[in-house]
Structure formats: structure tokens, C-alpha cells
Amino acid sequence: MSVDLEKILRPVDSPMKPYEPKYMMLASGEAVVVRQVFRDEIPDLLKHVEPLLHVERDYYDVVAARVYAELLGYYQHRFQDQYVLALQVNGELAAIVNGRQVTPKLGLSLHTLALRRGLRIGAHGFAAKMQYHIDDLGHDEVLVVAESPIGFRRWMIEYKLEKRFDVPHELGGVPSWALTRELFDRVRSKLVVGRRPVPADILEKAMEKILPPSDPPTPPADPLAATRAMYDATATALVQQRWEMEKGAQDA
């Protein structure tokens, strides 16, 4: 009797509500579209992620390598219950965010990779995927980790994430943090933006083709820049301040 090994290797995805595209205006006045990308468009993303493997700045190399593997795993049916959202400005790829459903009540954030910097594009992308988890997929909480100090500042500090240090995150086995529905509702009015439906012309431009980013992150001019990014004093100070305040409140 023959065995179709592919049936064993290929995970069966759980039904997940598709992400309805939305758009928002950036400080530059440009509209950025957030939309779900499915398997057929993954090769288009991969070729824009690959150059970032060689950017030794702000942990782009590590994040790009992992995103590349996740996208490839999704494309080749080796990753269960993953979704991928792309952010595009005039068709150009500006960011990729992805995550997955662990259980019907638990989500897991994988990565937020900004290919264009300086306009909160990554922050908008992260907010969009958290909204997808909480509002659309009905998750009670989402497990999150950060690989870069910038991510730590954006997620752990801005969203005031709760510790779930007893839960190893799928990314590197490091202690998890969690965005609960309650935490999300607290920041919703401040951090979560976007309009629906996306005007037809804007959506059409995004769907037409994923264009390469015109101003992607590049390697630092000097090796010293790479080492500098390994320590973010502000993030450290902010989280230390918060923990001291929490400890003070508990002691009181």
C-alpha cells in the first residue's frame, strides 16, 4: 500500500475569516493599503525580503531571515494557520506583518517588517494585525515578542503588554508578552486607525502588482552603526521605569 507522505507533512489550515482591506493616510499624505496576501503572491514578497537579510542594522537581518522562512513555509504548506498582510503605498511594498492562530482563542504575532521607515508604517501594520486577531479572529489574547529594541518600544511599551514569561514564544523560545482584549481596547482610539472600504482605485493599484520598495533599509555606512543598534537605552529606561512604578503600586 502506498502512502502519500505529503498528506502527513502538509498541515490542514483551520478556517480563518479573511482580512478585509483597509487604508489610512500617512503623515506624508500618501494612502497606505493594508490587505491580505495569499500564497500566489508570496514569491513577490520573498524577492523584496531577501535583500534585507544583509542589512546589519536594527536587527533587519534576523527579522528578514525569519520572515523569509515563514513566508516560504506558508507558500510550501509547511506552516499552519498563518496569515500575511502587506502594506502598500502606490503599489510599493512598505511593510509585511504576519501571525498565526494557535487556538480559536489564542493568536500569535510573528513579525512586523517595515520596508519603509519614518512614517509609523510598521506601527500601523502591527495595529492592523492586532485588530485582526482580536476583532476578526476573536482571539482573547495575542502572544508577542520583539527581536529589536524598536519593536520592543513599539509593542511592549506603547501597548503596555502583559508578561507571559511562563509561555515560550515560537520565535526563538523566548518569554512571551501578551496583548489582551482589554489592553487592546485601551489603546484602540489612540493607536488603531484605518478606513473601509478602500476606494476602488487605491485598492486596484495595490492588487495590480506588489512593486519593490523605492527606499528600503540599507546596510549601515560603518560597522560601528550595527553595534550601536544592539542596545536601545530609551527602551530599557522606559520599561525599567514602568516596572518600578508597578512595583511601587504593589508595595503600596
Binding site: M25, A27, S28, E30, L119, K190, G194, R195
Partner: peptide, 22 residues
Amino acid sequence: HLQQEITIEGILDSPEAMTNNP
């Protein structure tokens, strides 16, 4: 230092302005 264009609409008038420009 800053090499990013901004617009009045993006930082003041749009529904997203308060998030872009708190």
C-alpha cells in the same frame, strides 16, 4: 536629519492625523 516629506493633510486634517502626529 529628516528626509521624509509630510503634508498638512497627513499630520493635521486626516482621520489618522492624531495617531501620525500626537
